[in-house]
Write a protein that binds this DNA or RNA. Structure first.
Length: 601
DNA sequence: CTGCCGACTTGTCGATAGGGAG
DNA sequence: CTCCCTATCGACAAGTCGGCAG
């Protein structure tokens, strides 16, 4: 009954945006029996007026511990002479000295930004004395921190246990909130401590001081009828508001980019889970009309209007290559990275012929997080001709799509399908690829580890599509070697076990007694077990090798409809724990509950 | 239309907990 | 039980996208 109910509700969710309201527990009386229905959270009411909750209560954020001045024996030297710094100036030097081992502290921009911000924290006296970063010697401080972290590692079990308990206490007190009728885990209830901003890639602001956040910087969001969080003694919140049109519990403005940071709920929460579900439903709606959209953009390649041609070619890239939309960015504020709409002439090369292929486009640019996207793909002639046209009379630093931006593109997409935006294509193509690859790669007769290898390969296909690369782990070669050693050992074990089996068989032939018969059985089992272990190790080695430069996590967490994986597990009898770890199972609880083995994305 | 803001998702990476081998 | 190693998790950065004012 419950399944039926769940399916019905699923149906309603997918087909009908106007949903009736339900409570969390139902009582039905059938033939004198009282039946109780527990309704899962993701099947509960959703608000239709844009509000996200009715009741919200929490304890506010946890602040970074205050600065502890260095012991007097640890000295900072300027121009070879020891110098005692004021606490604010000293704190900033500790950030720098902790980073001394990193290459980026040698970079000009980093040093320049750091020095500029450091000087702002100095007293006027310090300011007039300290004028050259190169004359600063932080090595004693650096040594001190290294010793400290060594000491932390050497702490006794009891001390470590104490710290753990304290963390647990903090988690219990501040890590949860009540939203509507549920206790929910908060994602990041700790305020980021001050430090030096690093940024990714070639960031113009690297080295700047990320300042300490105080209660006076924090806006609290909770419901009027809740017990409001108390600021630390002697302080005040910047503001307490009661805005139930948003999901965050607290926010503050960060000083590097001037952007707002939020405290929000954990992915396991109702509010995040529902949104996630919705995202995949939008992608599934795209599945239904993607053919039509593809026909249309191919048609648009022939348009009389330049802007339409550009739009159509960009959309083709977004669809075929799973590129990101590519918003414009303020120059000099962030690293120079691009997405589809912000591609520049210098980022592509056209080859009318390359090897045995025609109309090849070579992409080479830095995308999100300054991860390089490099790809050579043959495109259709019409796309190629259009690209040549777009490139005419342009400089390398000019925009490839000068008549297009993400806002124009998304407005167009919105007209093609309700809720359609550029990023939906990434979700759609990722999920459909997983489903199709799983179909292709899974052999029903394979062992469980072999099936999991197939799953990872399907996952890998998606990660490659989305360009989720990673730097090979520093210990990669070594751990590969270790694994190989293990495999070799297993192989030796196996041949030894086989020899023993053979001997046992011979013995049985000779003596024909019960005992020798038993020995044969035991030895046979041993061989079998070792064979299995060997196979497992070999599969593991293959998997790891293929995964060297590819990160599976991001696509698994953000792009793959979890119901595909759940259905696959059910279909092939794979325990879900083999695919999703604990955190992931919590995040995807909605999918685990609702997907059957015949689920189709 | 443009720039900016606000909210929310997506992304990488390093620290570390805890599981398994010896 | 200890040590080693890796999977996991949190930190925090960097995207997307919609809305609004001028």
């Amino acid at each position: 009954e419950h399944d039926k109910k769940a399916k019905k509700r699923k149906h309603e969710y997918e087909e009908d945006e106007e949903d009736e309201l339900l409570g969390s527990v139902f009582f039905f009386s059938v033939m004198g029996c009282v039946l109780l229905f527990v309704v899962f959270r993701w099947e509960e009411e959703r608000y239709t007026d844009g509000s996200k909750w009715r009741f919200l209560e929490h304890k506010g954020p946890v602040f970074a511990p205050p600065y502890e001045p260095l012991p007097d024996k640890v000295k900072f030297y300027y121009d070879g002479k020891p110098m005692k710094l004021s606490a604010p100036a000293e704190e900033v030097t500790t950030f720098f000295s902790k980073m001394l081992d990193h290459e980026y502290t040698t970079k000009d921009i980093f040093r320049k930004n750091f020095f500029k911000d450091w000087r702002k924290e100095m007293t006027s006296e310090e300011k007039s004395k300290i004028t050259d970063l190169n004359k600063c010697n932080f090595s004693e401080m650096s040594e001190y921190f290294k010793t400290q972290s060594e000491a932390r590692k050497q702490m006794s079990k009891e001390e470590k246990q104490k710290i753990k308990e304290e963390n647990e206490r903090l988690l219990q007190e501040y890590g949860f909130c009540i939203m509507d009728n549920h206790k929910e885990r908060i994602g990041n209830f700790r305020i980021e401590p001050p430090g030096l901003f690093r940024g990714r890639g070639d960031h113009p602001k690297m080295g700047m001081l990320k300042r300490r956040i105080r209660p006076e910087d924090i806006i609290i969001n909770c419901s009027k009828d809740s017990k409001q969080p108390k600021p630390p003694p002697g302080t005040k919140w910047k503001e307490v508001r009661h805005d139930n049109k948003v999901t965050w519990l607290a926010s503050w403005t960060e000083n590097i980019q001037g952007s707002i940071k939020y405290i929000m709920l954990n992915p396991s929460s109702r509010i995040k889970g529902e949104k996630d579900w919705q995202k995949y439903e939008t992608a599934r709606r795209l599945k239904k009309c993607v053919d039509r959209i593809r026909t249309q953009y191919r048609d648009d390649w022939k348009s009389k209007e330049m802007r339409i041609r550009q739009r159509a070619v960009a959309l083709y890239f977004i669809d075929k290559l799973a590129l990101r939309a590519g918003n414009e960015k303020e120059e000099g504020e962030t690293a120079d990275t691009v997405g589809c709409c912000s591609l520049r002439v210098e980022h592509i090369k056209l080859y009318p012929k390359m090897d045995d292929q025609e109309y090849v486009v070579e992409f080479d640019f830095l995308g999100k997080d300054s991860i390089r996207y490099y790809n050579k793909i043959p495109v259709e002639k019409r796309v190629f001709k259009n690209l040549q046209l777009f490139l005419e009379n342009k400089q390398p630093e000019d925009d490839l799509f000068d008549r297009l931006n993400t806002s124009i593109l998304n407005k167009h997409l919105q007209e093609l399908m309700d809720g359609l935006t550029a990023k939906v294509f990434r979700t759609y193509n990722a999920s459909i690829t997983l489903q199709q690859q799983l179909k292709e790669l899974t052999c029903p007769d394979d062992s469980v580890p072999a099936k999991i290898l197939s799953y990872n390969r399907a996952n890998r296909a998606v990660a490659i599509l989305c360009n989720h690369q990673r730097a090979p782990p520093k210990t990669f070669e070594k751990s590969m070697q270790n694994l190989q050693t293990k495999i070799d050992e297993k192989q030796n074990q196996l041949s030894a076990a086989r020899k023993q089996l053979k001997a046992a068989k011979a013995d049985r032939k000779a003596s024909r007694d019960e005992k020798s018969k038993k020995t044969v059985e035991v030895k046979r089992k041993a061989v079998q077990r070792i064979e299995e272990q060997l196979m497992k190790l070999q599969v593991q080695a293959t998997d790891r090798e293929e995964n060297k430069q590819i990160a599976l996590g991001t696509s698994k967490l953000n792009y793959l409809d979890p119901r595909i994986s759940v259905a696959w597990c059910k279909k092939f009898g794979i325990p879900i724990e083999k695919i999703y770890n604990k955190t992931q199972r919590e995040k995807f609880a909605w999918a685990i509950d609702m997907a059957e083995k015949d689920y189709e994305f």
